[in-house]
Nucleic acid binder design. Sequence first.
RNA 1: AGACCCAUGGUGUAAUGGUAGCACUCCGGAUUUUGGUUCCGUCAGUCUAGGUUCGAGUCCUAGUGGGUCUACCA
Length: 566
Amino acid sequence: MNDLSKKEDNKEKESLNFIEQIIEEDIRTGKHGGRVLTRFPPEPNGYLHIGHAKAICVNFEAAAKYGGKTNLRFDDTNPTTEETEYVENIKNDIRWLGFDWEDREFYASDYFGQLYEFAIQLIEKGLAYVDDSTPEEIAAMKGTPTTPGKESPYRNRSVEENLGLFQRMRAGEFPDGARVLRARIDMASDNMHMRDPIMYRIKRDHHHRTGDEWCIYPMYDFAHGQSDSIETITHSLCSLEFIHHRPLYNWFIEKLEIFPSRQIEFARMNVSYMITSKRRLLKLVKEGYVSGWDDPRMPTLSGMRRRGYPPAAIRTFCDKAGVAKRDNLIEISLLEFCVRDELNRTDPRVMAVLNPLKVVVTNYPEGKVEHMEVENNPEDESMGTRTMPFSRELYIERDDFMEDPPKKYFRMGPGRDVRLKGAYILRCEGFEKDPETGAVTEVHCTYYPDSKSGEDTSGIKAKGTLHWVSAPHAKEAEVRLYDRLFTDPQPDAHEDKDYLEFFNENSLEVVEKAYIEPSLAEARADDRFQFLRLGYFCVDSDSTEEKLIFNRTVTLKDTWAKMQKK
RNA sequence: AGACCCAUGGUGUAAUGGUAGCACUCCGGAUUUUGGUUCCGUCAGUCUAGGUUCGAGUCCUAGUGGGUCUACCA
């Protein structure tokens, strides 16, 4: 056996997650004729976040893998909290993430008529009844997980009476909250969701799609499962919390004799240093901890988009995190790895100096300018080159000079040689200090004329290479440096402490005046770059003609910083 | 307390009764005109106790630990 066939043998076994295994089994047994249809069912009452991204990927990718499709369905059964504005944002976010639901855009509210008919059917079968009890009474009769509930005094109304009452509910004859329609199942069930769950409530509110057509609205539990069924969803993938709802959905499907969608639950993804609670996120926005839902520190898709995270990286991240049923906490370092991996291949490199220190090349003629050719991406030659002006006065990073450097320091220091990326090797001859503060104000160097990048005959091997800009040619820009929003990996997991106690006060640092190379003058919002040796940055939408603003997406890995910590 | 779900290196996820593998992180090394990238390497794991079996991470029982469930929200 040769090596080639061995390799073939090795990769023949691709490992499947438990959902894919179920789908493959269904295909093998011919269930639904091999058809696969999933759905992503957001409620249009908030912004999508990293947790939703996971659900979107799981649903769309599971279907796509087996030649199936995915529906987008808005679960809009509560008119009070839902708005059209959210619908547009959600669609925009899903498209940006890279998924397409084509023409299959549905709304639970599309099915209000059908759902009403389903309710009538159940009443006629003696499986649903109108209850006049107050919310408090219903809650009291519900019992607890360890004690059975009590049956409502209205539970044994006749079919005719229930039918009449329900029709009058629909006709608007009763005030809000006066009565509800409940499924007649089992008040003693171990599963609280089977203790005669409410199917319909009276609620006079303007619905974002159906307007004032209805004054009764189905509960989520009476809408979700049947919506799946109506759309003939084959595999309804949702999070673990709905595991207790499954018997109820199956009960409705069975009693109504409708298409049997199968619900499969998986553990939702948690990411360290991030929170996804809608309420807590809202508080960050409302109380000004962040600038809005799209603040680049937010775990929202709009926030991550503005931060500069490429959608492909988010998809890869969700894929690598995997799918299973156990609780998980994915390290944010995996996300950062995926972002860097993507950006490393795609982003052009440029130079910017965030914390400038002036360098004077004393043996370089005053007024002379050379245009140095610099590669745009060493990972991708096809991205070509650009030129950068080089002159007698330059800026380098303040961190890249030390008055009295240790031996492992490869950057500029008195008497040391260092390469300027794409330009010359410089020798540091001295420096000037502010007599009052002691701060270094200027560094004096000489350059080796025969060390020009690409035609270096000097034979000098400089250990370090620095980024730089030409002082008279550099443009100014604002740069926003972001760090994780919280100082604790699970800020909302502390019983004794509020998550806001872990808010990272240093999560945003603004550099008002950074120097960027002149080629960046034409950059426009959303353009992405690697600032050499600093990190990946994108142009923020706050930028104006006069002033460019960059967001730091993520730093480069920094082994020097790591060494220093030790 | 009851029902249900879950348990593999620091983290996440494979192995479907037959050699515990992969990725991230960490650590070390090589290369490098980015202390980036790339490449190589090290460390490190089946919750506990019984049982079934020639053989158990996998099947069974019990225990332990974690999670979920008692909205006219979704």
